[in-house]
Amino acid sequence: MSQSYNRGLVEDFGRWKEFSAGMWAWIFHKFTGWILIGYLFTHISVLSTSLGAAGNEAAIMSETDVYTTTLQGLESLFLIRLLEIGLLAVAVFHILNGLRLLMVDLGIGLEAQDKSFYASLILTGAITVASVPTFLTGVGL
């Protein structure tokens, strides 16, 4: 729908206060989805260091192979730990809201679609907060 002039679109973020629950769910689901697929590519790249590590039995046994040192080097960074917590939050939300969407696709509980969105938000927050200690063990600030 071409517009002869710009009167602002409804989904402009300037109007975010007017967004409905379902619209937020869609925005968050898409946003977390982009992060997850982006992460999958980086994840495989990092794990590819195992190609260089394989075969060098001595280094593997003494845990000084390139795979082990790369992963542990990354894990020793506080920033990486923070990002991991973020990733957990993103994944948990995508899973919970994904379950919500599967229910919607099956035609179950459509009247409660907004409540189930809020529930997945709250659950995501709770699970993330509860996981913080686990994700921060053994890292120096």
């Binding site: 394989a54 845990e63 795979y67 542990q72 686990t134 053994g138």
Partner: peptide, 22 residues
């Protein structure tokens, strides 16, 4: 995904991953 996260962050810890373990 839930299994993967659980296994590598709660059962095993990501900072303890070694080539041997993998």
């Amino acid at each position: 995904l839930a299994f993967h996260f659980f296994l590598l962050h709660f059962v095993n810890h990501a900072y303890e991953v070694t080539f041997l373990g993998t």
